[in-house]
Design a protein around this nucleic acid. Sequence first.
DNA 1: TTGTACGCGTTATCAC
DNA 2: GTGATAACGCGTACAA
Lengths: 334, 334
Amino acid sequence: MSTILDVAKLANVSTATVSRVINSPDNVRPKTRERVYRAMKTCRYKYNALARGFVTKRSHTIGLIIPTITNPVFSESTRGVQDVANANGYQVILGNSDYQSEKEAALIEVFRERQVDGLIITTTNLKGNILKNLLDDEFPYLLLYSTVRKGPMPSVGVDNFLGGYLATGHLIQLKHRRIGMLAGEFRFSDRSFHRWHGYKKCLKDNQIAYDPELLLHARYTPVSGCKGLKRFINAKNPPTAVFCSNDLLAIGAIEGARQMGLGIPHDISIIGFDDMQIASFVSPSLTTIRQPTYEMGRQGAEALIDIIEGKAGKPVHKLLDISLIPRESTGANT
Amino acid sequence: MSTILDVAKLANVSTATVSRVINSPDNVRPKTRERVYRAMKTCRYKYNALARGFVTKRSHTIGLIIPTITNPVFSESTRGVQDVANANGYQVILGNSDYQSEKEAALIEVFRERQVDGLIITTTNLKGNILKNLLDDEFPYLLLYSTVRKGPMPSVGVDNFLGGYLATGHLIQLKHRRIGMLAGEFRFSDRSFHRWHGYKKCLKDNQIAYDPELLLHARYTPVSGCKGLKRFINAKNPPTAVFCSNDLLAIGAIEGARQMGLGIPHDISIIGFDDMQIASFVSPSLTTIRQPTYEMGRQGAEALIDIIEGKAGKPVHKLLDISLIPRESTGANT
DNA sequence: TTGTACGCGTTATCAC
DNA sequence: GTGATAACGCGTACAA
């Protein structure tokens, strides 16, 4: 593989000139520029971005850590991150934490060793010292899908508390009084935790006693949602409506109800969270809380790049809008 | 940021020894090893993998090019690639081509400039000289979801022709004679093209005349599937069954039928392709052709790493098994 | 406008 | 078992 030195020799210029042709072509006389371009062609020169990164100490790479790319919600935000990153000359390295904080910590280490210019993290545990280390090192990073709203850690997210509140309010408005919640494990996802708080608060505001029997934990998969719903139905005093803390759970729950011979929303109402692409295409279509995942990725990447490039002021804390999308999976309690 | 030189000074050893402690600790006396470890701690040393890559000419990075991470099928295979890559010390850079060969070509360039050790490409156009260039440069790469079965280009995929044949055969067995196909654009996806060939061949083998009116092209989205199905229904002589060339289309088609007031499978049968995670959770659950996407990613990454590390013999051509998964969206023609 | 020369952090090749 | 030192390919003062 040829280097700028080869090109330089071939074009009878110095390596500095070749470098200039690559990075600031305007600073070089058109004639020599042409000569260099020709030389690059004849020796099939390929630019080595790694070597550049080595000297400039900028890899133009962003590390993106998410629970798993397999969840459509994170695919969407990943796409948003990528689009903004690429538009700004950055590439994205992807890492899955599987909701395990050890994997998360390991990924942060690996990515930093690889000299990524910054990190976007959808974290599962804020207690560790890992994030504090990043802060101490003044390493550029940003929390995505974050529940953090103030402090030194930059973040982009939605108001999960509000989401839980909206979902529950919708069900209460439909005359439901016995409302279950199928939630992701709190220790793995503080988002789920905040949604639960919104749920509880809304119950309280409507004079409905909170019943711990109506909280069930599940993994974020349809299968788990299906099982969870069946457990609810088989309880002594089953709910008439269930708030699932994401759409994958909700879709599983719908299937679970179906398998138990229950009509939706006639016998039981189901509401999800996320509004992933297929939420409107399942049958019955899914009532859910929409969060702008793609946009979240975009804005997260924009904010991170600002930090990386020194254009940022004090830590940003963006809270994107969410909204209730009423569809067919919820109906009046009869 | 401290370097091995700082560590070396602090531990009173040479940089070579520090490097040894990092890469082959057994080759260094335990006592000095300890001294070095301590020195690394006191000056908060962080290993620079970029610098290593620069000298070893191995970045331990794989470039993965897919149409879009937003399609669950590609999320799954991406996960497979990542799992194998990470287990072998590689990281994955992700690029979306959006089914555009120019973007694909640009990504290949960018990734090569970044000195990725190899590429995994789910390509959309094999005609270009781009892949031939890779071959000429002896650059490690592999085609995923590939229809290529022989020749110098290593590939992992499934038999899409067979898939199309199986899907069509299933419908014919259910007494359907007028079978439509909702297909991804052939020029963007040779996979779709091969499925169509399987479809045609199966019709022929069953003495059913091929009717070009029964081929409709669509983008790989539920919305497009929905529109496509409506167009079919509004035709003079509509099909009684539709083979969609992926599940996203099929889910959209089901919704389209529903909006037209048609019962599934009573009024019209729908079969998809992929068996993505939620295929069994939509209602009616989706009959489809299952392809092992996660496993495809795994095997692709394994094969690529073999090539990178010089363990490969002649180009591999793996064809993974596919199978018909009959569910509720298809039924007998009445 | 162009060239010279050094440095970036690590590994690898010799010696010792 | 350890040390000295030359690469690796590029950017960038500084000089011309």
